[in-house]
Design a protein around this nucleic acid. Structure first.
Lengths: 109, 109
DNA sequence: TTGTTTCATTGCAATATTACGATTAATATC
DNA sequence: GATATTAATCGTAATATTGCAATGAAACAA
């Protein structure tokens, strides 16, 4: 096993889970925060900034790219990364909708 | 390896990752949505509602409980689950702060 | 007490994730 | 061309996650 049974859930539930899974590692959180902090394209200094090996960072960047949260521009031998603001906004809407549920306190809890 | 190097990141980054990881499975998303939808305590019908085996649901519930997002009240032979609204609000603040970052579009992207 | 119901726990198999050394690909510089 | 730099990819080891059958534990019902 070890295989998530995605077919038992709605697309919305699977989307939320996929987004959340990408945020489920501190290195990817740190990468995103750094990209936001610098407020511009970051050219390759993520390896020294985060402190993991270059292939590891590259792998995390790939997952962020797969979800569309970041973009990479090739500039000579290096690559500049930045937040994909449009997709970030879309993702934010999905997550806000999920997180911002409110509930009137039940009777037994 | 397969072991996340949590010591390389801030507590905040690790907190965000831990919260997100719990949301990173559609079954847990579905459980939480069901608890919100019924707007009350749910006594044991989660197994039939979600469609996974009872031990699997129990395991997912445990993770949600560990993070403090849900509470379980024993009522006879069954257990009633509901959202822990206080902790949900705290979690929501942490995630909103992370997700709600804005950025003025960079120069190269 | 004997069964029944409900849920947690244990144990295990299959798959996924994380991390990194080694290598490759692409571009720049000499 | 030869070399250096940067980042992606490959391969692999270690650990984590997912899912469920089997079993346990606790409360109820007869």
């Amino acid at each position: 096993m070890g295989l998530t049974k995605t077919d038992m859930f709605t697309d919305q539930q699977n989307d939320i889970a996929l987004i959340a899974k990408v945020f489920g590692h501190p290195a990817r959180v740190a990468i995103l925060q750094h990209l936001f902090k610098t407020n511009a394209c970051v050219c390759g200094d993520l390896v020294t900034e985060i402190g993991l090996a270059q292939p590891t960072i590259s792998q995390h960047l790939k997952e962020l790219k797969n979800l569309g949260l970041i973009k990479g521009n090739v500039e000579g031998t290096s690559v500049c990364y930045c937040i994909d603001t449009d997709n970030w906004a879309k993702m934010k809407n999905i997550m806000f909708q999920f997180l911002d549920q409110d509930i009137t306190k039940g009777t037994c809890c």
